[in-house]
Design a protein around this nucleic acid. Structure first.
Lengths: 87, 87
DNA sequence: ACTAACGGTTAGTTGATACTAACGAATGGG
DNA sequence: CCCATTCGTTAGTATCAACTAACCGTTAGT
């Protein structure tokens, strides 16, 4: 999606959008293609999913670490429920 | 764990820890018990897990929303893998 | 060449966050 | 009562994220 169009959907200026997209691009979460004067941005879905996985791992470790810290008897283990996309 | 002890494990001042704990308490993520001059803080595990769930839901929606936005053909659905605590 | 459209970049502003040092209230022991 | 310990709170400081307006380079049509 082009920057300008993207910005029409958001409550901020086109310039702000441009700046955010720059950060996202540098992080590898979006990719950009030039089309004339337009810059078409695409989500890098694999990277976003990887980010999610990393956050998931972070949470797993954090919760595991907290469990150690308070030295409580371990509760019955609870598997994370699966999440299907509801569409 | 008492505030002062907690602070010895962290790279910030005791006062900073106290301030953070206040925010966490107000958010319901920790609970406090007075023991003399000491304040013993406990994690509110249920609340932390609920927060994680909410973040999880947020991500589900965000990813679902992004999928709509780019109007790509839906990929084969991938169930989230289960996470067992490795301990 | 001129013009319009697009978007990256810069400078400036604002508000939030995180920190430290210091103060003082509360607790408990001698 | 005095003293030491603990910790919440305040004031001040620094950093950073997020924003806007403006500028200007690039592209493409006439």
């Amino acid at each position: 999606m082009p920057v300008g169009e993207l910005a029409t959907h958001l409550p901020v200026s086109r310039s702000a959008v441009s700046q955010h997209l720059k950060v996202l691009k540098e992080a590898g979460l979006v990719a950009e293609q030039a089309a004339g004067t337009r810059r078409i941005y695409h989500l890098n879905e694999a990277a976003v999913l990887a980010l999610r996985d990393q956050l998931d791992t972070f949470w797993d470790r954090a919760l595991s670490g907290f469990q150690d810290l308070v030295e409580r008897p371990p509760e019955a283990k609870r598997k994370r429920k699966g999440h299907d996309r509801a569409r």
